[in-house]
Design a protein around this nucleic acid. Structure first.
Lengths: 110, 110
DNA sequence: TATAGACATGAAGAAGTCTTCAAGTTGTGA
DNA sequence: TCACAACTTGAAGACTTCTTCATGTCTATA
């Protein structure tokens, strides 16, 4: 969990593993748009409440999101604006990757 | 492994999991500098040969690196320039994250 | 063609991650 | 104060991923 003194590439790997879950990706994407209460996230993501809490816990412990009580609900927000940049850059890479693979498939089939 | 038809956030999660291993991160970082033969990677990364091959296999199947035989050795290269951008953007985020956490620790301790 | 070097692969036990369940906490309104 | 809503937590079995071992392939060279 980003403990100091460990080699940097270890921390990087750990960080990417934190992003390596569909629910956590969705949460971050939603939080990049605006902050959300837990019940709002629950309405958007198909997942059990306790599972959502677990995933929020993972993101919280990684330092990627912040929690805040407000008027009987718990609101979450991304902790750093850099998260948005990273997700965009991943989307970029992924769409090139998918296009390339579609191209390859087309080439193989025709 | 980036199969078409699955929801996008699933593909994203899978993609990040591919990056979620210290050896694979190191491989990609080295390949972002220049392409390397397997034995060159082996000299840089502390890992058993068969393990390195396994990790290269993961990256290859994900479409992130390309393999090429040449003069009795196998050379690897990153498949897309976008990989470099993404790694930089992750480094950016991670260093902010680490600074923030160091700040928090300092605040808590003194 | 035999041998060696450079890699890749399949399989299996160890280790880590997910999902769910049951139970716990924290505010809020009756 | 009681009860409820909104979340969180710990634990446990199911499921994945890692690492390593033994073996296999490919190429170049003697």
């Amino acid at each position: 969990m980003l403990t100091p003194g460990q080699p940097l590439y270890q921390a990087k790997a750990e960080f990417f593993r934190t992003l390596g879950h569909p629910a956590r990706i969705r949460i971050l994407e939603l939080l990049c748009e605006r902050d959300h209460a837990v019940h709002e996230l629950l309405a958007e993501i198909e997942i059990e409440p306790s599972n959502l809490s677990q995933q929020l816990g993972v993101l919280r412990r990684a330092g990627l999101v912040l929690q805040q009580r407000e008027a009987g609900e718990v609101r979450y927000a991304v902790a750093l604006p850099e998260v948005r940049t990273l997700l965009l850059s991943a989307r970029e890479l992924l769409s090139t990757l998918i296009d390339d693979q579609a191209g390859l498939r087309a080439q193989l089939q025709g």
